[in-house]
Design a protein around this nucleic acid. Structure first.
Lengths: 110, 110
DNA sequence: TGGCTTTTTGGTATAATTGCCAAATACTAA
DNA sequence: TTAGTATTTGGCAATTATACCAAAAAGCCA
C-alpha cells in the first residue's frame, strides 16, 4: 500500500470515526432538521454540558459541523448537506442483519 | 430521547464504528473489487495475520462482510452492495475540508 | 498419521475514547 | 463592576480498541 493511499484512508477513517458514537449520530440527526445551540442539544441528550461540548468539538474537528456564536450562545449546524444520504447504507446493513436474524429464528427457533 | 431511538442510534453507531479504522476501510475498498482470502489481504496490508483476522471479525460482526470457507482458505466479500456510495459523503466532507484549508492559506499564508 | 498451510483465538501491553467534575472563558444585562 | 448564563477546557478514572506473539484449530496432501 503506498503512502498516498494510506493518508487517504487515515483521513476518511478520521471522519467516519467522528460519526461513530450514538450521541454524535443523534446530534447529526437533529442538525439535519435545523441548527441548535449547545444548551438545547444538552437538554435533549441528557448528559453533562461539557460532554456534549466535547462531542460537538469532535464533529467540528472532522469538518462535519460548523459553529456560529450569537450572543452568549453557540449554534451548530451541518457543514455538508449529504449526511442524510450517508446513512442509507447503514440502514440497509441493519435491515440485512435483521432479516438474517429473523431467518435464523425461523430455522432454529432461537 | 426514548429507548427505541436510543437503541437505533446504538445499532447504527456500532456499524459505523466497524468502518472507522483505516485498515478496515482498506479491506472494504478491496472487497468492492472482488472477494479476497485472508492471506491476500494480509499481504496487501502488511500487518500480522492475526491482526487482519481480527479486523475481518469486526466487519463480520457488524454485518458488513460475509465469509466463505473453501479448502483451508477463508474468502471474504461485502454483504451489502451499497458501501461504495456510502463513502461519497465522506469524500465531500474531505473536499470541503480541503477547500477551507486552501482558502485559509490564501488568506493567512500559513 | 505427520507435516504443512491458513486462519482464529487467548493473552498482554499500550494507546485512545468517554464522561464527569471543577475551573476557566465569553458574553449579557443590571 | 458584579452577577448570571452559556460554553469550553483541563484533569482524571474507567472502559474500550489496537497490535503483536504464541498457541490452537481446521483443512490439505503425501
Amino acid at each position: 500500500m503506498n503512502q498516498s493511499r494510506k493518508n487517504h484512508l487515515d483521513e476518511r477513517a478520521r471522519i467516519i470515526k467522528a460519526m461513530a458514537h450514538p450521541t454524535r449520530l443523534f446530534i447529526i440527526e437533529e442538525l439535519e432538521k435545523e441548527e441548535r445551540c449547545v444548551c438545547d442539544l444538552t437538554e435533549e441528550i441528557g448528559a453533562d454540558v461539557s460532554t456534549v461540548s466535547k462531542h460537538l468539538s469532535v464533529l467540528k474537528q472532522a469538518g462535519i459541523v460548523i459553529d456560529d456564536k450569537r450572543g452568549n450562545q453557540v449554534f451548530y449546524r451541518l457543514r455538508v448537506p449529504c449526511i442524510l444520504n450517508f446513512f442509507g447504507c447503514v440502514e440497509s446493513v441493519l435491515e440485512s442483519n435483521a432479516r438474517e436474524h429473523a431467518a435464523l429464528f425461523e430455522f432454529t427457533g432461537k
